[in-house]
Design a protein around this nucleic acid. Sequence first.
RNA 1: GCGAAAGUAGCUCAAUUGGUAGAGCUCCAGCCUUCCAAGCUGGAGGUUGCGGGUUCGAGACCCGUCUUUCGCUCCA
Length: 513
Amino acid sequence: MSQKPEDLFKNVISHSKEYGFIFPSSEIYDGLSAVYDYGQLGAELKKNIRDYWWKSMVQLHENIVGIDASIFMHPTTWKASGHVDAFNDPLIDNKDSKKRYRADVLIEEHVSKIEDKINKEVEKAAKRFENFDAVMFRRTNARVKEYDEKIQSITTRFKKALNDNNLEEIKQIIVDLEIVCPISGSRNWTDVRQFNLMFSTSMGSVSEEANTIYLRPETAQGIFVNYLNVQKTGRMKIPFGIAQTGKAFRNEIVARQFIFRMREFEQMEMQFFVKPGTEMEWYEYWKKARLNWHLSLGLGKEKYRFHDHLKLAHYANAACDIEHDFPFGFKELEGIHSRTDFDLKQHETFSGKKLQYFDPELNQNYVPYVVETSVGLDRLFLSILSSSLKEEQLEGGDTRTLLSLPPALAPYKAAIFPLVKKDGLPEFAERIMTTLKFDHQMAYDEKDTVGKRYRRQDAIGTPFCITVDHQSLEDQTVTVRNRDTMVQERLPVDALANFLNERVSLKSLLLTL
RNA sequence: GCGAAAGUAGCUCAAUUGGUAGAGCUCCAGCCUUCCAAGCUGGAGGUUGCGGGUUCGAGACCCGUCUUUCGCUCCA
């Protein structure tokens, strides 16, 4: 149990690989940076987590409905959301100070320094002459004119380079202007690189004028553009929510830490539309509700904490993260943001369509405010996996590898073993399997000693092992062994269905909310 | 992106100054047996991440490249 965090993280990664939870993407070709595939057990666990979230959001709330929007969206969507402008920066690094700068900012700062010089000239002249005409001075003074021309030529050149997307030219401008790094004072620059967080591809035939299409960097916009469709056709009354799960893509500069930050990842989001002025109440409501949801997984209260954002994004008037204690420290798991009416208003402006709600109580129209809950499915997966993986010391000096997953989320809900591979025990076991497999994902194993089989199921988190022995043939009972306590009890075969339903069904977990 | 470390069987790791790639676990077939892994017999699995170079000879040395981990940086 007392493993070093680095070791635990290493174990999580190799355990994931060894048992088929997570593989590096296209591994036979050396993998692809920060892209991972879910294996046979990982896919089950991930699906169960997603189902639990979906049911707790959509099925348990009459005023929340789910949609499934496309990954491709109209390019204007990303202009309206601010993603195009916010993430199209040419960046350059100084090799000596290791600091990264926006190339356009460096050039603009250089230009403003020249402007300062002009202003100084003007100030100096103003002191010297009476009846000073600043406009005339600017137009006629040789030194000022020289500065002005310099600014003109720089900005013309810079604008052209930006328009042509000519990164080499931008670097050349920085070199020509002899711009130095404010920290190291050196001119030892890397090449200029364009970092656009959004992946792009083209839509339409190649020969024609193809449109640049972005892979969505967040799923939220799919909800906002469908706000009116859902509200009208679903006859939704404020407050109401729209939920969605799906893939999003970000071309991260640095993507690290296994599946914590991937370039392709899955979000589970719910946008809750409320009356303006009530958003803070709902913000607090969802903070509590979402933390409660995480606590229901039983990984431990001490594993979670809130982190309030001091610096708010351009669209938010309140924001916080639910952080989880990962093997590499507390990191963001879920974000809860009060997004105001920013998104819907932006889409109104860019689309020219009204995205409003007629409130019958107030007898007036308004753009609803939005409270968002947004959790990373892959991060949730990692939080559950890493918190569940344990090396347990047993009496007698033995150790066992235990994956104490929340039972309702485990890939296999129960495993069935014939104690021996003869005397009709396998046939008996398979009959039980057949009756239970319609309700639960079941495993079957008849290889090796039964103790070994228990350990194998412990390592993949199967909550219960059902063993058929010779007594089973006589009185139709089996033993059921608990993963966490290793305690066995004998149950009639007929009681198994209820036994499992009460302990491993999603319903059993939903009831704890 | 910069810096550091690493990459050998499914997993964890060996391999003397450069000299025939190995072990344990896993896996497969069978035997024995049976309620908490590690009994017996046999077997499978490797162009040592990839590509070059030096050498009579490279897992080891050099260069490049890919991937991973850590630190810095970034993360609307």
